[in-house]
């Protein structure tokens, strides 16, 4: 009696153990003790990531099966999916590997297609390329690199305009040109004064010549020339302004884009580049505003222009006394040499 009771207890106890092991095997992620019931699909992926045996196969978050195994077929990662019998997967559905948690648990997600035909046992399901978290990070890195490059180019471009110690930029060239010719311009101006004085005194052929219609017209022509030179100079400054505006636009866009790119731009070197660009731009505009350099003077002070007009006014006043063509030609040459 006692023996049979104990036999029953032992039997029950042993069965309980088996049931517990079975339950544990079924609940844990890689229960391979008993195969799930269902039909099999194959899915070839470019990269299976960390998908492993026992991971879930889900449609819109609902589990419809499990990954029964992974294999390498013809160099392609192949997952064998066991899909529950009651689930029908349209023939144009697509499978992809997605991350179900930041902890790194992967799963196979199936996006249902439209077809009314369904996949059956042994079929291969189409797949979407795997978005690898690593790849995403690598891409973000690439974007950063490219931005870096872009800023480098902008900086480079601006540097070629402003120039630096080693390499004279466009502005510097202009500056140097003016500086170099300052003497000759002054001489010319002086000469003009001398000429106008002489003319005013009505001396020589120049005075007489000024009486002449032809001479008057040629003087007028020179004046228009000078004017157009000035307008051209203004137009050029406009172009610079457009350039400045463009750069500012880029900067603004980058600034606006900070939210989306997130910490990407917190990269110090990039920030420094942008700062540098901004500083350069400010420097340029400052210098232009302060009338530094000849171009600056040319643009803001209009010094030469005024000087020229003053000369012309004087010239007008003394047209009568103008008798010599030579110096006038010299003014023309000086003006055209300047621009």
């Amino acid at each position: 009696m006692k023996e049979t009771l104990n036999t029953a207890r032992v039997g029950f106890f042993f069965l309980m153990g088996l049931v517990l092991i079975y339950i544990v095997a079924q609940s844990l992620s890689t229960g391979t003790l008993f195969r799930d019931r269902g039909y099999e699909l194959q899915a070839q992926f470019t990269n299976l990531q960390q998908v492993k045996e026992g991971d879930d196969v889900r449609v819109a978050g609902v589990k419809i099966g499990t990954v029964r195994g992974t294999a390498l077929e013809d160099g392609k990662a192949t997952a064998i999916l066991t899909i529950n019998d009651e689930v029908q997967v349209p023939i144009d559905s697509k499978a992809r590997v997605i991350l179900s948690g930041l902890l790194g648990t992967n799963q196979v997600d199936i996006q249902y297609g439209e077809s009314s035909e369904y996949l059956s046992d042994g079929d291969t399901i189409e797949t979407l390329p795997t978005t690898d978290l690593n790849e995403i990070f690598a891409k973000i890195g690439d974007v950063g690199d490219r931005l870096d490059g872009a800023f480098d180019q902008v900086t480079e471009a601006l540097r070629s305009i402003t120039g630096d110690e080693d390499e004279p930029g466009l502005f510097k060239n202009l500056n140097e040109l003016v500086v170099e010719n300052r003497e000759s311009i002054r001489t010319t101006t002086k000469n003009l004064e001398t000429i106008t004085d002489t003319i005013a005194r009505g001396e020589g052929t120049l005075g007489r010549l000024l009486q002449d219609d032809e001479v008057y017209q040629s003087i007028q022509r020179i004046t228009t020339d000078l004017e157009s030179v000035a307008t051209n100079a203004k137009g050029f400054s406009g172009e610079i302004q457009v350039l400045v505006e463009d750069v500012q636009g880029i900067v603004r866009k980058v600034e606006a884009g900070e939210g989306t790119l997130g910490r990407l731009l917190s990269d110090d070197s990039i920030a420094r580049e942008i700062e540098l660009v901004a500083k350069n731009l400010r420097e340029i505009s400052d210098r232009l505003n302060a009338g530094e350099g000849t171009l600056g003077k040319l643009l803001s002070d209009d010094a030469l222009y005024y000087e020229a007009t003053a000369v012309l006014r004087k010239a007008e006043a003394t047209l009568d006394g103008l008798g010599n063509q030579g110096p006038i030609t010299a003014v023309g040459i000086a003006a055209s040499a300047l621009f």
Partner: peptide, 15 residues
């Protein structure tokens, strides 16, 4: 945490 990271092999090893 158990079902995702404890494989049945772990339990089997334990047994």
């Amino acid at each position: 945490g158990i079902t995702n990271f404890v494989a049945f092999k772990d339990v089997l090893d334990g047994l």
